[in-house]
Nucleic acid binder design. Sequence first.
DNA 1: AATCGACATGAATCTCACC
DNA 2: CGGTGAGATTCATGTCGAT
Lengths: 375, 375
Amino acid sequence: MGVLEKIRKAAPRAVEAPVQLPLDQILRGDCIAAMRALPAKSVDLIFADPPYNLQLGGDLSRPDGSHVDAVTDEWDKFDSLSAYDKFTREWLAEAKRILKDNGAIWVIGSYHNIYKVGAAIQDLGYWILNDIVWRKTNPMPNFKGTRFTNAHETLIWASMGEKSRYTFNYRSMKTLNDELQMRSDWEFPTCGGQERLKRDGVKVHPTQKPEALIYRILLACTKPGDVVLDPFFGTGTTGAVAKRLGRHWIGIERESDYIAAAEERIAAALPLDESSLKTMQSPKAAPRVAFGTIVENGMLVAGAVLVDAKRRYSVTVRADGSVISGDQTGSIHKLGSVLQGAPACNGWTFWHYETPEGLKPIDTLRQTYLLATQI
Amino acid sequence: MGVLEKIRKAAPRAVEAPVQLPLDQILRGDCIAAMRALPAKSVDLIFADPPYNLQLGGDLSRPDGSHVDAVTDEWDKFDSLSAYDKFTREWLAEAKRILKDNGAIWVIGSYHNIYKVGAAIQDLGYWILNDIVWRKTNPMPNFKGTRFTNAHETLIWASMGEKSRYTFNYRSMKTLNDELQMRSDWEFPTCGGQERLKRDGVKVHPTQKPEALIYRILLACTKPGDVVLDPFFGTGTTGAVAKRLGRHWIGIERESDYIAAAEERIAAALPLDESSLKTMQSPKAAPRVAFGTIVENGMLVAGAVLVDAKRRYSVTVRADGSVISGDQTGSIHKLGSVLQGAPACNGWTFWHYETPEGLKPIDTLRQTYLLATQI
DNA sequence: AATCGACATGAATCTCACC
DNA sequence: CGGTGAGATTCATGTCGAT
């Protein structure tokens, strides 16, 4: 074996250890070119929100005559369906090179593009694990009455191959969903209100995603310290959530306006145990509220301590909505029963949190949440 | 209209008529071969529930029915994936030939196959109108806790092309949904109980679809008397629902066990009577009333003044049913849009007239007129 | 100080018959 | 095939100003 061959063979190993990843940074530039500059097998998870190639027609107005602000940005325009197909396969191939063997990818899209994305994912040898439906609580109606209200978007979750050992924090998801398996249909409102980034009263990005959506994905499919890459970074939702959850992130973005907004936003994001109350929301319709939802919405933060009414027991809240006491972990209900040695326990009424007015049962948080979301 | 003109208008219909379709029958045989025997542009709607049989583990059969040994190596996987792709494109191409220019297709699938199906639909020049999520109220849990509970299936609704004029009974859907637009996420239980066909206590078909799902599709996208083709007929859910709704149906099925079950089932299905079908018709079918008719009948007199709800604009009614404001004249719709500077305006709801009880939209006059002249 | 109503807006492939 | 004009068409949520 010649020297060159030896070097070639040795190179991969040498690369593996001291991998030089631009952690917690935004790389400015074209998505595919920037990905090419990243080392192979170096990233744990990719979350991608690529252009949807909407192909909108003329102007659209509401029945009241007001104008609908559509996505008209250049980055969403492609010459043809096959040009979009080519673009999709190129970035997905680069993504596969960059991912670790046990890594995984999430891609979000709508019916305009998700079938092309999914077909490419399968052709490239990824293994689809689930598709997830994001049901919007407040979608834009179909103003002309021509179709069904387009009330959802689709996410595809895929591993590197059939045998790959991907990360799935099953317990976290089950706890987040109040001891029921998390299903493939998730309900969140669209990104608006305080969370929506604006400059001079105008939205910075036309398609900003809700943090709650990314939060659930990173909680389900990464471990603390993992590296999450977002090749279509936009205004940095992925970076902000990754920072909150103690994950490393890398963003790729072309538009400097978006980069500036993202940097400011991520700088202001607080890691979980310090973050202050936030108002996001999720479920509705269902009278049942998972304790995880209370945490997801920031009404209680990870690290908060809960005690029973007589302060005999205490537990600490974790990011996935489970609680911990010594070496015991589980749902609020489970730990209530275990610590008391009782056959069952309603965690909602058993556990309390500190307020300036004294202890209050966490059920008041659930009531507040229901009031805010149900009317 | 003179006699000659009437004949000229009728002529195209005469050409359409003598198409020889095997209505309300099950064609036994291979789906693609049977479709080839059907005439072009003859069917109004296709509902298809193609086999999903990919990556299910254990036994696997190709779309053509041949057996595939357990998938263990990459080549086999690729082979089965591309074979499925080829099969999908073949039957979708035949479907496109058979459909009328203003026809449409529905296909149901899961993440195993729906991306291949959707990509093929787009490549073949169909135009996707919506994708619909069927949320199962009672999905099978993920027993191993390795993924999210797969709690939904996906349906794609596509027309023959971007400009095609497909059928969509908007009002029926809105009524069905309690006067809110029907959304793209539908909730139904899986098919079970009395509805599930069984023989000797064993389910006849592994993936029988709930009738409620097909019912909603046919109600939304067909008119009474339309022809619905189901190329993967199975136990005939499409036929049973079509018969109930007064639509013609054609089924294609290979397995004689399924055919026998389907025939028995459809024979027992009872059609809804005409009057109940009629109530589900769109009020769009109600005859149009010109504003001039209202004036002609003295319900408003020339010289009457109309204003908008906030009294910001006003127009005067003229004898021919036009309205005037300053030097602007035209229809109630045109002046509504011109005065507001809006791209369009529904004059019936925009303009109001004075009554002792206050302002009322002129649409109430139209309703009164319709009530008095109908029946 | 609460409450109410007007107004704004969100990844949207958004009319159709008749000259 | 293009132009024209009549006619049909919206839900949930957040903000802000008026009462």
